[in-house]
Simulated scan of single mutants.
Amino acid sequence: MAPAGETRTTGQPGLRERKKRETRVALSQAAIRLCVLHGWDSVTVDQIAAEANVSVRTFRNYFAGKAEAIAASHLERMFLVAEDLLARPAGEPLWDSLLHAVLGRFAGSENSGMDNSAPENRRWREGVRLMLAEPALAGEIVKANAAAQRQLAEAVARRTGTDAERDVYPKLVAAVVAAGSGVAVEHSLRAGEPEPLGAILAQVFEQLAAGLPVP
């Protein structure tokens, strides 16, 4: 996975690149898991490296700190959405393809405890909400979003025969998808009664595809 601010090509990566990507994802997931369970201030880089079974030096080779590590999971997921969009059937309507791509990559959140009412899952949802509200994370999320939107715009451009640099359309679609996905996650985390993220995403994309009609 390319660092934030870079655009990754969508070809098949080599073995070395796959290994690096796996390590990056493992570190990011370890950072999220520890920060959600124990709180932002209680987690150190040493603990994250140990959780991922790598050295602190390896962590530093990938990330400057835990905020960048956490944001990397969002960036990776949105990059995979772009890859999945390009793999959808060519004749499928764009917004149907986008919905399938987003649902496929956000569905794992339903297994992370955000979508049912068991006490431990409610605690997980609250931990995620508190982590995402951490000021130190905000800047890294903004950078990750920008990089993710560039990658998604490239995929949309290839699907629609437009130009991601010259045309507004692919950039606008990428920005809307990123915003809609973010709204769905935020709604799921803050709902009084837990709601399945997949159902919220489906509702969001149905309204987007319809042009956001007034309720």
Rank of each mutant, 00 (worst) to 15 (best):
V36M: 00
F205D: 10
I32Q: 07
L98F: 02
A67T: 14
R33T: 02
M131C: 08
T9W: 01
R18C: 01
R88Q: 13
R18I: 00
A209C: 10
A133L: 04
E51F: 06
A71M: 10
F79K: 04
A90H: 08
L132C: 02
G211I: 14
I141S: 07
N61F: 13
A64R: 15
R159Q: 08
R57W: 08
Q151E: 15
V168N: 07
A191N: 00
H38C: 02
A164I: 03
A148N: 03
A133W: 01
D167I: 01
G198N: 12
A49T: 06
V185K: 15
L34Y: 06
L189G: 00
A133T: 01
A2R: 15
R129H: 03
A2Y: 11
E140W: 13
V36C: 01
A4L: 11
E17M: 01
L85Q: 10
E193T: 02
F205Q: 09
P213D: 04
N61M: 14
A199T: 08
E165M: 00
A4Q: 15
F63Q: 13
P3D: 02
R8M: 08
G39A: 03
E186M: 10
E193M: 01
A49N: 06
N145Q: 10
L94V: 10
R77T: 09
A69G: 11
V25P: 13
E110D: 14
A136T: 10
Q149A: 06
A210S: 07
E110P: 13
N116T: 10
F106R: 02
R77C: 04
L152E: 06
A2H: 12
Q203F: 14
L208H: 12
S188Y: 00
F59C: 08
A50D: 13
T58V: 05
N53P: 09
A157P: 11
P119K: 02
D167V: 01
R159P: 12
V173D: 09
E195G: 11
W40K: 06
G5W: 07
V128T: 08
V214G: 07
G91D: 15
G91Y: 07
E83A: 00
M114H: 05
D167H: 03
G104A: 07
L85P: 13
A144I: 06
V102C: 13
D115K: 03
C35S: 09
A153Q: 15
P196N: 03
A101H: 04
A136G: 09
V176N: 07
L137E: 03
V204T: 15
R24W: 05
A155Q: 10
G161I: 05
A90W: 07
Q47N: 04
S97E: 14
A107H: 11
G113Q: 10
R123P: 05
L172Y: 12
T160W: 08
A148I: 05
S112H: 15
V183R: 11
G161Q: 09
E68S: 07
E83R: 00
A157Q: 11
A50P: 09
L189Y: 01
H74V: 03
E195R: 15
E206C: 03
A184R: 14
G11Q: 04
L201C: 08
A30H: 04
D167A: 00
A179Q: 11
G182Y: 01
G104C: 07
N116M: 07
